[in-house]
Each structure stands twice: as C-alpha cells, then as structure tokens.
C-alpha cells in the first residue's frame, strides 16, 4: 500500500524528525494498513478504504499534541509569531546600529577608500531579511 506509506512519510517530512519519530513512521504505516485491511474485510474496496483511512487520520498536530485542543495549539503558534516579531525588531535595530558604526568609521577615518562599508552592510542586512522571511512563512502557515 504505497499510498499509506507516502501519506505517513509526507506527514513527517514537514517536521524535524527525532529518533522517536523515525521509529514511529513504520509502526504508524503498519497501523493504518491494518485499518485498510479491516475496512476491506468489511467489504470496502481497497481504494475507498485507503481514502477513508487517510481522511480520518486527523492532523499531524493531533499526533504531536494529543492532549492539546485546537485553540491551545493556535495560541502556541501565535506566541511563536510574537517571538518572531521580537526577533525581527531586535535584528533590525542591531543591524541599523552596526551599519551606522561601520559607516561612521568608513566615512570619518577612511574616506579615501570610498564607501566600502556598503559591502558588510549588505551582508548584515540578510539577518533581519531572513527573520522577516521566517515571520511571513509562519503567518502563512496560520492562514
């Protein structure tokens, strides 16, 4: 039953896999295949049984947080967004300060070499940019 294997592998591919997760994947596949077998024994054809099994599985968050209700999980994600926002603010301010210092050193002490501070400034800009990217991704996940 390739569909079941693909489904479980896809579920776990979006998460960083711990050692426990790696042990879980084959057992989960086995359990879902057992369900398909049961449904087939009840008279359902294989393709319908696979569809039903996949549809009734639930979300990967139900697996990772079986005791937590949806509202709490959403709240947990919101908190993460707040964290990303703080990270972004911190990185933006730090980047501005660092660029200002490099710019000052460049223009005040070494004006004869031209505006070379632009090169490290561009490099350091990737710090807030990468955090902005993560924040937007996180917001996208919540929609």
């Amino acid at each position: 039953m390739k569909e079941i294997e693909q489904f479980v592998n896809r579920l776990f591919s979006s998460k960083t896999q711990s050692k426990e997760d790696k042990e879980t994947v084959p057992i989960l596949i086995e359990m879902l295949e057992e369900k398909v077998e049961d449904l087939k024994e009840e008279g359902m054809n294989e393709s319908d049984a696979i569809d039903k099994t996949i549809a009734e599985f639930g979300e990967i968050d139900d697996y990772y947080h079986p005791h937590m209700d949806k509202e709490k999980r959403r709240h947990k994600r919101q908190k993460t967004i707040e964290h990303y926002k703080n990270d972004l603010l911190f990185s933006a301010l730090s980047t501005a300060i660092i660029i200002a210092i490099i710019g000052f050193v460049n223009l005040y002490y070494f004006p004869q070499y031209g505006p070379w501070f632009i090169v490290p400034a561009l490099g350091i800009l990737f710090w807030p940019l990468s955090l902005l990217y993560k924040l937007l991704n996180k917001k996208g996940e919540n929609k």
Partner: peptide, 26 residues
C-alpha cells in the same frame, strides 16, 4: 489492535464520539 480500539470507542459511545487516529496512535 489500534483500529479495534478506535472502533470500540465509537461503538461504546453510541457513535457520539470518534477518536482521531492520529490522537489514538500517539
């Protein structure tokens, strides 16, 4: 076995509660 547990819960609650497999297996 796994699916048997899910079916038992569903039947014993007169089909009022079904456990999601993801939750059950976890």
């Amino acid at each position: 076995y796994g699916y048997e547990i899910a079916t038992e819960i569903y039947n014993r609650t007169d089909e009022k509660f079904s456990i999601k497999e993801a939750t059950l297996y976890a």
